[in-house]
Design a protein around this nucleic acid. Structure first.
Lengths: 354, 354
DNA sequence: CTGAAAGCGCTTACAG
DNA sequence: CTGAAAGCGCTTACAG
């Protein structure tokens, strides 16, 4: 079925030079090694004529680099991570590397990806899988890899080991800011729609906990006593999850909540949708805010107030940091914290238009 | 920086057997070759003790398989493609393969991915890059690959060559169906919000053209004369694109359109958002429908009527077909057309709730 | 300015 | 039931 593949030997023969020369020319190592223009042209022409494509495996085995990096993503269905991945892909293209995205929603896939790195199948790993990366067997595996000098960068979680740099945001401060914004608008009964396990001590370094803490601190500083019934949790950080929680909230009798801080934009979109379906006016009867700043937040009704994450910067920094690690450049800092921004749209009630 | 890697020789020495035996045991080739239980246990224990991970490049070079497949995606920001990719990832995990997603939004990245396949860096390719795959240099490259027996499956476009199977839907029929649905609700002035280049003969086999044709046919069969001003085009199949087109439509004076068929759900979401912002009631003053059936369509206000694509099936079939190709199984058919379904929600006006 | 040779770490017939 | 050996197709010092 397959044709005879054309190898570097074929090109060498065709061009009348050695394999070494072909390799040097085709890899552009001609500045340090100096090969005549004529020879270069001959080699390139021969390669072109034969339709030569280097065998990746052979190249990787000999050079000990795969010329690919991998980004592990917790869930391909979450646009927030993919908007960052898109930026990372843009940042990778100018280098002669390929960025591979791998879905980590299944445990098998996570472990396989780590083995892939250990086996040299990829030269570096950007991990964007949420709090799974900061506990359990994944954490153990990560520490093991890092101690062997494998380049691993963590995105959007805290650094779990002194050899694993992290690019992240200050979730506590951001949650404080957006909750404070709601308090400033006069809200006093503010719920927090979160991911299941927010109060689990096991997750104490995770994103949901940090956001919850910031929310709690804002309430406290405003002199508002937190009511345990204000924390609602769903296992899915999705519109479906947010919608379910909002329905639960609206079903409740008793002193009504007037605003909700959602764990992320997707949950906020679900929450807004639930209000719309039940005829609850957003923001007048219920203010809703999210986290992330995904594009879709501009198109909800009303548009979503959120904590905008610098997605392009996050993607670029992750790639940049990974290459620094791969090249052995000393890291300026273990954790790089990038700034977020409160973007006020109509869903919080601070503005009527937009 | 890197430690000495443990190789198969180390394991062989540790276990007191040959490299061949280690390879056989670790790859589970023990049924055909018969190796004693005792030896197997010894080998496995040794590998475990040493923390052995096979070198991917060496394995690939010797076995001529990379144990990875690649899915090229036109744009990581489009949830429609990623929901399918997610299904493809699920379908790949049970096999001992890794599915790599590659962003093809940049031309360089497309070509690089094709070279990667040619160079054996991946064993097969699922292409989901829209009409780019059915014309121009990409098409030439695809044909070249296919003629060399490289496994390539096209997703959601027509098969561009007799050796490249396609998994797709009947866009013409689906567009006919949804347009007909609007006609049945009494609409007579129905616009089509599309991608730039819909009428370009170069794209004649592409998805936008097929959908446009189905829309035209529905109008014709209902005795409605198409008005050229009803075709509006934007280069971006995004909420921003759909929003821009809806604003353009609403800015127009003259006999108003009462419904729009959008090229995809994202554009429809943008269109609905534009209506909401301008106080135009959806669906009463403007009915809006989309294509695709992305999750987000359930959370717009009002929820989106659309042509649901069987995303799980599409992902599974793409993976299945690719493995068939890789294993040399004869294909039942060059094009596999999977059924779509009209999902009626509130944005078309056929139902008030939901 | 370019070539010959070793070697990367596996898998795969082939023996026995 | 298991081992010795060739070979996959490159890159990389090392010579000259």
């Amino acid at each position: 079925m397959k044709q005879l593949r054309v190898t570097i030997s074929d090109v060498a023969r065709e061009a009348g030079v050695s394999k070494a020369t072909v390799s040097l020319v085709l890899n552009g190592r001609t500045s340090n090694v100096a090969i005549s223009e004529a020879t270069q042209a001959t080699v390139k022409a021969a390669a072109q004529r034969l339709g030569y494509t280097p065998n990746q495996a052979a190249r990787a085995l000999a050079s000990r680099r795969s010329y690919s990096i991998t980004m592990l993503i917790s869930n391909l269905d979450n646009p927030f991570f993919l908007e960052i991945a898109s930026a990372a892909a843009q940042a990778t293209t100018p280098r002669e590397y390929q960025l591979n995205l791998v879905d980590a929603s299944q445990p098998d896939a996570k472990l396989r990806a780590l083995d892939h790195l250990r086996g040299g199948g990829t030269d570096g790993l950007i991990i964007t899988i949420g709090q799974d990366s900061t506990r359990g067997y994944v954490l153990d595996a990560l520490r093991g890899l890092a101690s062997q000098g494998m380049p691993v960068v963590l995105l959007l979680e805290r650094s779990p080991a002194p050899t694993i740099p992290a690019i992240r945001v200050d979730n506590e401060a951001a949650a404080f800011q957006i909750t404070n914004h709601l308090l400033g608008l006069g809200h006093r009964r503010i719920a927090f729609l979160s991911l299941a396990g927010t109060e689990d001590p096991l997750h104490e370094l995770g994103t949901p906990v940090s956001r919850f803490k910031g929310y709690r601190r804002a309430l406290a500083e405003a002199g508002v006593a937190f009511d345990q019934s204000w924390l609602l949790e769903d296992p899915n950080p999705t519109p479906a999850g947010g919608s379910a929680l909002m329905h639960r909230l609206l079903d409740r009798s008793g002193a009504p909540v007037t605003a909700v801080v959602c764990f992320n934009d997707l949950m906020a979109i679900g929450a807004i949708s639930a209000c719309n379906r039940r005829g609850v006016q957003v923001p007048n009867e219920m203010a809703v805010v999210g986290f992330g700043g995904i594009d879709m937040g501009q198109y909800t009704h009303p548009p979503l107030t959120t904590i905008q994450h610098p997605r392009t910067l996050l993607g670029q920094l992750a790639v940049q940091t990974l290459f620094d690690l791969m090249e052995g450049t000393p890291l300026a800092e273990l954790e790089r914290i990038v700034p977020t921004e409160l973007v006020v749209r109509a869903s919080c009630g601070a503005t009527t238009s937009n």
